[in-house]
Design a protein around this nucleic acid. Structure first.
Lengths: 198, 198
DNA sequence: TGATTTTAATGACAAATGTCACCCGCAACT
DNA sequence: AGTTGCGGGTGACATTTGTCATTAAAATCA
């Protein structure tokens, strides 16, 4: 089976690649970032894309979206460090077949790959619990404002960046704080980030 | 050679472990977090500890400090995702022999291990550039206050946590902000974190 | 079209935050 | 003893931030 492995950290990429080659009859091609993976996807067909989410250039989710749009016959499995609930939902919307934490043992990864190839959806159990329940309550503007605030920008800078009045910016932040049951903008940013909403 | 591998992400740990077993005549023992590694260190001697920095429980640097204090005959190599300058310095102070990014290829890791075993110090070149230059200007109290502030705690909560008056807590933050040329506490936390001083 | 949401703004007020001058206690040096 | 310097701490003040009620324009829809 023909696998494309996209992961930016070289040490992890090569380690995973050689392990997969051994464990089963996988043929693994490596890509060091999202753009490289995209180029390879355009050049030749793969049975499966195994990708990290956080990568310079294109993210794993964007790759999945490309595959979905082009209606390629390539399954997608995402592996990532953090089980942000928001990620899982966005990934599923992009037609991803599997979503695992790097916390999971390698055998589980191999199993997941086989199940996804068989047409099933596989999501790490730790994530399922997490992804159900709440969903992102933030509006787009609120999210943008919060993102800037988390970078240490002052209210006036945020207002300038978003082309809105200072009072309005404060309103957005206030809304976000209240929606997230946070104590202040920093707390709100922390919570949103932890849920994968930033 | 007898290696203890401490890394919390199971997928990466097993992948690295099996790869190292293959690549050279290494005997690898795995530890899933800092405490497990510590327990193993107490039970039996190892030639080398290969450890991540960020781990639940004890960090890789704390493990290195333990080894230094107990004067164990165990070399230490740290691998980590982020090349925060502050980490490198603290690691070196803890007697760490090697410091590599997970970005580095596996061959470099094997090389580094061999060189460290031969008594040399190895630091990834990307990190060297970074670690020179500025050094941490924060006092211990300032760092603690900033860490809490970055978690969204209010001044009064920080004061309570550190057993100091509210005004004093504000002073520490103010000092930190000024030392880091930041605009506010969030900005200061961001800068400090990026430099590895948090 | 008129009715109703959305989105952006304003003003006013309380609370939190940032700044700064200043005060101790204590060690070090003369 | 004097004084110098320093880390740790205060208190007062100006500014920023968070909340809320209210308004105005725009977009959406029956």
């Amino acid at each position: 089976m023909n696998i494309l492995l996209a992961e930016d950290q070289a040490m992890i990429r090569t380690a995973l690649a050689s392990l997969l080659q051994l464990e089963a009859d996988f043929q693994v091609t490596e890509a060091a970032d999202g753009s490289a993976a995209l180029k390879l996807l355009k050049q030749q067909p793969f049975d499966l894309l195994l990708s990290d989410i956080e990568m310079p250039g294109l993210s794993g989710i964007e790759l999945a979206q490309y595959i979905q749009q082009q209606q390629l016959d390539t399954k997608v499995v995402i592996i990532t460090t953090f089980g942000r609930a928001g990620y899982v939902k966005r990934a599923m919307d992009a037609g991803v077949g599997g979503f695992l934490l790097k916390d999971a043992p390698v055998e589980q990864l191999v199993q997941a790959i086989q199940q996804v190839m068989a047409g099933k959806k596989v999501v790490g159990s730790e994530l399922l619990l997490n992804s159900l329940g709440e969903q992102d309550p933030l509006s787009d503007k609120e999210r943008q404002a919060l993102r800037l605030a988390a970078d240490g920008k002052s209210t006036s800078e945020i207002a300038a960046a978003l082309y809105i009045a200072e009072g309005t910016a404060r309103n957005y932040l206030s809304e976000a704080i209240s929606k997230l049951h946070a104590a202040n903008r920093i707390d709100a940013a922390r919570i949103a980030r932890q849920k994968g909403w930033l």
